[in-house]
């Protein structure tokens, strides 16, 4: 079973990469000028208090010692203690990560659900009006910044039309007691979806546009293939020719673009969370940096890195799933 072995192998390969991410975040964070202690204690702290705080956060030890104990901690699931919030970093991340995941995941869902049919139809009707329209839309999509789309959506749908709330996002399974104006779980789901719509579209448009473009060009190539002509010559109907024989092999470049898009989307989430005032990972990172909360900066950066790595692994595995030459180690 080539695919299973490939999956395990790919996950093992991720370990050194994770250590690399940890190392880089650790040293970069420590290279940031400024001092968290002085922020905590105000402009003129007494010497004992400084020492006391430094000792409490281990800042009095040499850098390499702190590095190794940090690594050991992470290996046991301890990402350190947030200076600013005074809670374990992991607690803060667990609180914030799901909202960001919900946003990014929905943005990709929206992007794929619109881009794939659009790209395929565009390829099938090459140089016809449908194709021209979809190509222009895609071009606008890849060249418009997401925060700008976000602001535009807020102006139109919140301020002008008053249809959608402009800020805040919570999960559809949040407790109704914590959601203002919601009596049942169903109300929560509806409200959650209404709040998701605009940030999802703002974040997903770039992905949608770039996936549409690659889907189109990949399908155009694929439809020229000899094996696609063969399927037609054996009486396969047009739907089968396009959605099976041409579609599956055409998804390899698409997967690559989706994988690359994940890092863009995680970066984009920081902006979108700021625009829509969503308390997710993106805003957490910005707050951590502003407060020079080193453990939190390291923890969140590492977490986003790990998240990206998961995305890359999923990409690679889907690649191997589609192309047998990859899982059989011939490519």
């Amino acid at each position: 079973m080539g695919l299973l072995r490939y999956t395990v192998w790919r996950c093992l390969q991720a370990i050194p990469v994770l250590v690399g991410i940890l190392t880089i975040t650790f040293f970069l964070t420590n290279a940031i000028p400024g001092d968290p202690v002085s922020i905590m204690l105000g402009p003129t702290p007494s010497a004992e208090m400084v020492e006391q705080i430094q000792a409490r956060y281990g800042l009095d030890r040499p850098l390499h010692e702190r590095y190794f104990s940090y690594l050991a901690g992470v290996a046991q699931g301890d990402l350190g203690h947030s200076i600013y919030y005074d809670v374990p970093v992991l607690t803060k991340i667990i609180e914030r990560l799901p909202v960001t995941a919900y946003l990014v995941f929905s943005a990709f869902g929206f992007a794929l659900l619109t881009a794939i049919p659009l790209g395929v139809i565009s390829a099938k009707r090459r140089n016809e009006p449908v194709d021209h329209v979809s190509r222009i839309v895609a071009l606008i999509g890849v060249s418009t910044p997401s925060f700008w789309i976000g602001l535009l959506l807020i102006i139109v749908f919140s301020f002008q039309l008053g249809l959608l709330p402009a800020t805040g996002l919570f999960l559809p399974w949040a407790d109704p007691a914590n959601v203002r104006g919601a009596a049942t779980q169903f109300d929560v789901v509806v409200e959650s979806f209404k709040r998701l719509l605009m940030p999802m579209v703002a974040l997903g448009t770039l992905q949608m546009a770039s996936i549409t473009r690659i889907e189109r060009s990949s399908m155009v190539d694929s439809l020229q293939n000899e094996y696609v002509k063969l399927a037609r010559a054996y009486g396969v109907d047009e739907r089968g020719v396009i959605w099976k024989h041409a579609f599956k092999p055409a998804q390899l470049p698409v997967i690559t673009i989706v994988g690359l898009g994940l890092s863009t989307a995680l970066g984009g989430a920081v902006l979108i969370e700021t625009v829509f005032e969503i308390n997710g990972m993106g805003r957490l990172i910005i707050q951590a940096i502003n407060n020079q909360d080193y453990p939190l900066v390291m923890g969140t950066t590492f977490m986003l890195g790990a998240l990206y790595l998961v995305g890359v692994i999923i990409t690679d595995i889907s690649y191997a799933y589609i192309d047998p030459r990859v899982s059989y180690g011939e490519k």
Partner: peptide, 15 residues
């Protein structure tokens, strides 16, 4: 039925 010239291109690599 038809058989094409290039056997390397006539079969779909992903099935």
């Amino acid at each position: 039925a038809i058989i094409f010239q290039d056997p390397m291109e006539s079969l779909n690599p992903v099935f």
